[in-house]
């Protein structure tokens, strides 16, 4: 016997409903049910960080979060950072500094950087590296990523 669980999520400010199976992850529901495909699936094992999303103000792994356990929670994905056509500070800094190459890791990286700056608005380079240590990028070598977070931090929040 399987329980089908009805859930309601607030995603980027709007209410969404879905019926999920107990083993469905938040990542699955976001991407494959509700089509928020900005959030990426890399390893599905919690290692790469591509699936990072913010749940109730904290960065977590979408691939390790059981969707049924997220009933009633507030979620921010990469799609929710910009305000209309205006990018968030972090997005803008990543764009300007050319921190993005293939881009696959970027939704997770930018979400993690956003969460980091919320917790530590003026991080040291060390703190930036630690804060993003759970986000792997196979292209960039991280130098410009770190720089972009510094620039976003200098410009202030959001």
């Amino acid at each position: 016997m399987t329980t089908t669980v009805p859930i309601t999520l607030t995603i980027n400010g709007a209410l969404h409903q879905a019926f999920v199976q107990p083993w469905h992850t938040l990542l699955h529901v976001l991407r494959d049910v509700l089509h928020f495909t900005g959030t990426k699936r890399g390893c599905n094992q919690g290692i790469c960080g591509a699936c990072s999303v913010i749940v109730d103000g904290e960065v977590v792994r979408g691939c390790l979060s059981i969707a049924a356990n997220c009933q009633g929670r507030t979620i921010t994905t990469i799609e929710g950072l910009a305000n209309g056509n205006t990018l968030s500070n972090v997005q803008q800094a990543f764009l300007e500094l050319g921190a993005v190459q293939c881009g696959y890791c970027m939704p997770g990286m930018i979400i993690a950087a956003t969460a980091l700056l919320k917790r530590t608005p003026k991080p040291t380079e060390e703190e930036i590296r630690e804060g993003l240590s759970g986000n792997l990028c196979r292209c960039s070598g991280y130098v410009k990523v770190v720089r972009a977070v510094q620039v976003a931090s200098e410009r202030g929040t959001s």
Partner: peptide, 9 residues
């Protein structure tokens, strides 16, 4: 332990 996201979970 792990990374920020892992410590939050």
């Amino acid at each position: 332990i792990g990374h920020p996201a892992i410590r939050n979970m």
